[in-house]
Amino acid sequence: MTGYYDLVLGLIPLALGGITALLSVFGLALTTAIPVASVVAVGLIGHAMFVNGPVDSTPASTPADDGGFQAAD
């Protein structure tokens, strides 16, 4: 099953190549089309890292709940 991050990894080269080709077909110079497409690819990476970032599914343990020895009170 493909997850969000698998789709992002597939969209990065697709966005870079596809948007570059599309913009160059519409008449933009290649030296302009590549930076514009790379901004989209970097946006995908930034979204995957910071907006929808990977999270740890296990809750963090607190010092009082570490499973160690109890206090001698």
Rank of each mutant, 00 (worst) to 15 (best):
A15T: 14
L23G: 08
I19G: 00
L30K: 10
A37R: 06
V36H: 06
G68W: 02
V39F: 04
Y4Q: 12
D65V: 05
A60E: 10
L16A: 12
F26E: 09
V36C: 02
T58D: 07
M49L: 14
D66C: 01
L16I: 12
F69T: 15
A37E: 02
L30H: 07
L14A: 13
G10M: 15
A21M: 08
G46A: 13
A15N: 05
D6N: 06
A48H: 01
I34K: 02
D73S: 15
L28M: 06
I34D: 06
V40Q: 03
A48V: 11
P13H: 06
D56P: 09
G17S: 04
S24D: 02
A48W: 05
L14T: 13
T58E: 09
G18N: 00
T2P: 09
T31V: 07
S57N: 09
S38L: 00
S24E: 12
V42G: 04
T62D: 03
L14C: 06
A41W: 00
G46S: 06
G10Q: 13
A72I: 12
V8E: 02
D6M: 14
A41H: 01
L9P: 04
I34T: 07
T31Q: 12
Y4K: 13
G43L: 15
G53K: 12
M49G: 12
P35F: 01
T31A: 05
F69P: 13
A21D: 04
L9H: 04
V55C: 12
A64W: 02
G53C: 04
S24F: 01
A64Q: 02
L28Q: 00
A48E: 02
V42F: 11
F69E: 14
P35G: 00
A72L: 11
D56R: 14
G3S: 06
V25K: 07
G68A: 11
I45S: 12
F50D: 03
D56V: 11
T58Y: 11
H47C: 13
A41C: 05
G3E: 00
L23F: 07
Q70F: 09
L44N: 00
Y4V: 14
S38K: 03
G46E: 01
L9V: 11
L23M: 14
V40A: 14
P63C: 01
T62N: 13
D73K: 15
M1A: 07
P13C: 09
L44R: 04
P54H: 11
I34F: 11
V8T: 03
G3Y: 06
T58M: 09
D56W: 15
F69L: 15
A37L: 00
A71G: 13
P54W: 03
F26H: 07
P59Q: 13
H47N: 08
P59Y: 07
N52V: 07
G68P: 00
H47V: 13
V55G: 09
V39A: 14
S61W: 08
T31L: 02
D73V: 15
I45N: 04
D73Q: 15
I19V: 09
A33Q: 07
P59H: 12
I19C: 03
A48N: 03
G46R: 04
A64S: 08
